[in-house]
């Protein structure tokens, strides 16, 4: 009796298993396969063991990319999350303003990523782009194609412009879900705006903010298209983030073994950090 039930159960699970298998597991296994072999033309493969992993982990080039990646990710998190919450707090709660704000907020999210990169590339060009021209016009020596600091500034500015909306939308959803009674109760207690934020709004937004931070963390760690179109990793290697470096190795140099090993390390770094993030943010949160 039990056995029949179990077998029926497999049928229900099968679509998901197949989907995950083709979508994630099988491609991942090919990568694992490449990462432990040396590949030559004519389908010649030689067993390499963990050599590529050891090489990658020891290579200064990987360290530099990883550090740049971490700096990028934490910078945008530090800017986008507080900014997103602030914008959400400032947004109207009812009336026509709500729809107007939501539409404007959603717009950057709807633009294809490579278009975002091109837009900002042109926008920031020192000779013909408005941003570049304006900055130079007011006396700031700005050229993101040559100066690493300018390139970083443009990169982060672009990401903030592109993705803060996501944090805003999530935080706003959390805010409007708080019943009015909470605000009334706080008013009766004579709580100041800061206390309302600290003891009601922030704790009530905790779940959505956890999701926002996780999404922005993972997405920014994976970011490729926009910086590739904007700076191509330059000037020099100054904005070469992990993903850009990976593509250079895999497609530029066609070193499939090291690229596969790097992919796996990259994947594990994201997985591990996301897990740590999630555990930290959900700590003390029961029910």
């Amino acid at each position: 009796m039990n056995k029949t039930v179990n077998q029926k159960g497999w049928l229900f699970v099968a679509p998901v298993v197949l989907l995950v298998a083709f979508n994630a597991l099988i491609p991942l296994m090919t990568v694992v396969n490449y990462s432990v072999q040396e590949t030559f033309g004519d389908n010649l493969f030689f067993w390499a063991g963990l050599r590529w992993f050891v090489d990658i982990l020891a290579s200064p080039r990987f360290h530099d990319s990883l550090v740049r990646q971490l700096i990028f990710t934490f910078s945008i998190l530090l800017i986008e999350v507080p900014l997103g919450v602030a914008v959400a707090l400032a947004m109207p709660r009812k009336g026509i303003g709500v729809s107007v704000c939501l539409v404007f907020m959603a717009m950057p999210l709807l633009i294809p990523w490579n278009v975002v990169g091109s837009m900002w590339n042109i926008f920031a060009l020192p000779d013909i782009g408005f941003l570049g021209w304006a900055l130079n016009a007011i006396g700031i020596d700005y050229n993101f194609t040559q100066d690493p600091v300018d390139a970083w500034f443009t990169l982060i500015f672009m990401d903030v412009w592109h993705w803060t909306s996501l944090v805003v939308l999530l935080a706003y959803a959390g805010l409007v879900a708080i019943p009015d009674d909470y605000y009334q109760a706080a008013k009766i207690d004579g709580a100041r705006p800061w206390a309302v934020f600290r003891y009601i709004q922030l704790p009530k937004m905790r779940r959505v903010l956890t999701i926002a931070v996780l999404l922005r963390f993972m997405d920014s760690f994976n970011i490729y298209t926009e910086p590739f179109v904007l700076t191509g990793g330059g000037p020099g290697n100054s904005t070469t983030l992990l993903s850009i470096d990976l593509v250079k190795i895999a497609l530029g140099q066609f070193d499939l073994g090291p690229a596969a090993a790097m992919s796996l390390i990259y994947f594990l770094v994201i997985l591990l950090s996301s897990w740590i993030f999630y555990t930290l943010m959900m700590r003390g949160e029961e029910s």
Binding site: P179, D181, Y199, I200, P203
Partner: peptide, 9 residues
Amino acid sequence: YQQFINYPN
């Protein structure tokens, strides 16, 4: 209130 209003954290 009808809903149980306490400071969550």
